[in-house]
Design a protein around this nucleic acid. Structure first.
Lengths: 229, 229
DNA sequence: CGGTTCGTTGAGGCCCATCAATCTATGTGG
DNA sequence: CCACATAGATTGATGGGCCTCAACGAACCG
């Protein structure tokens, strides 16, 4: 089972085990469940073990932005470790399973094991790079490139084999995609049509197919280095 | 002298001193100097002690995005601590002074002092929240709100007194502002004109004046909580 | 079978980019 | 000290990418 936190390179074998055992058992959650409201606190880190979730922010007018999509193995609210409140909400986007790591326990472990403290840093810095690349997308890329780039990123994060053609489960609605890309669902639809008609994607039922990953990456100017992989 | 890293709440007094003494002396740098190229490595953390700098990414077509403006006290390339290469460039935007903290020394200190390791985490997570809020701006806010929000953020980060009217040094060109907001310099100019004609800003020579901070914040939907202050 | 969510498509309009010109400020060399 | 070059600010005209509004179809579900 993939776990982004446990895969930090700065963890020793012992530390990895200790940290792994501190994480509670996964619990099933419905789609569309608000795990955390924007600005709330809480006393446990949430780890998505199955399905999809996201962090999101909302303007007063009600439009939503998803800075981070969360897939199996991702930590939802890492910031909570060192901040009392967290400025984003966490919501499931599909049926999912979520495990908890008590904040106090995480802090204690970080104090005892330097490698665990570094693992938290590592994860935070990795998210940092991803968010910087997102800023480039949102600020400077066309809608088409933005979507293409997101799909390239997800194919890597979901561990798809690096072959000519790639496919992975993809349960998001076009509205949710739009919220991740700063677009409306209507425009996401048109952009997907364009990518499909150019054989860069071939979505089926809840499954995304990238028939020619190399070309899609070239088109999106995707460079996987920023994912820390 | 403000220092973002040393102001982490998880540092003990001793740790703060130890970390402070590990940082080298500030060295003067010209405006527009490339301290680090996109994708480069390096063996020292850079800390801006005076003037302005930025992290930036560039598309193949050459358009630039600045995810983070760096002012006095900010760490430029924190990610370097745990990653071999860093996916953004660092450039000064004005005449500046920059101090260095050797990477190996920083890692060693983090290993000996849990509080120092947590301070790195703290800073990374704080940047994380700022980047998430940036994503909301870039994805969902109008150009005018984006600029207003940036100015509100800078007034807080530069430590301006929280009075009815606020002013702070502001040496950026309109092109650099555009790169931070995902806009062209031409449009930045028009947006500034609009804000000026509505008495929300009153820029003088290299100095930004916010005559009515409360109203500007309301307009920008600015909530300083995300800055971890 | 009716209701709801999501995908799809069209028409029209606005925000912001693009291209281009002018103006000012700053500095530089003769 | 002036002529000139350069960078940045300002303004106009035009166009396009994406939003908004609206309608309809398709899939799913109780």
């Amino acid at each position: 089972m993939r776990n982004r936190l446990l895969s930090a390179p700065c963890l020793s074998g012992v530390e990895r085990d200790v940290l792994g055992e501190a994480i509670g058992p996964p619990k099933p959650v419905k789609a569309g469940a608000d795990l955390k409201r924007q600005g709330e606190g809480g006393d446990e880190l949430l780890i998505v073990t199955e399905g999809w979730a996201c962090r999101h922010l909302v303007t007063r007018a009600g439009s939503r932005q998803i800075p981070t999509l969360l897939v199996a193995g991702d930590v939802a609210n890492l910031d909570l470790l060192l901040f009392d409140r967290v400025e984003y909400g966490v919501t499931t986007l599909s049926k999912a399973s979520v495990a908890a790591l008590p904040k106090s326990l995480a802090v204690a472990l970080a104090g005892e094991h330097p490698g665990i403290a570094l693992a938290f840093s590592w994860l935070a810095m990795a998210e940092n790079m991803a968010l910087s690349v997102l800023a480039l997308s949102l600020g400077r890329r066309s809608a088409t490139q933005r979507l293409a780039h997101l799909l390239c990123e997800l194919s890597v994060r979901l561990g798809a084999k690096d072959e000519h053609s790639v496919s992975f489960p993809f349960p998001l609605t076009q509205e949710q995609i739009g919220d991740a890309l700063g677009l409306t669902s209507v425009h996401v639809n048109r952009v997907m049509r364009w990518l499909r008609s150019n054989n860069l994607i071939a979505s089926a039922d809840r499954v995304m197919v990238l028939p020619n990953v190399a070309e899609l990456r070239r088109f999106a100017e995707f460079d996987r280095h920023y994912l820390g992989v």
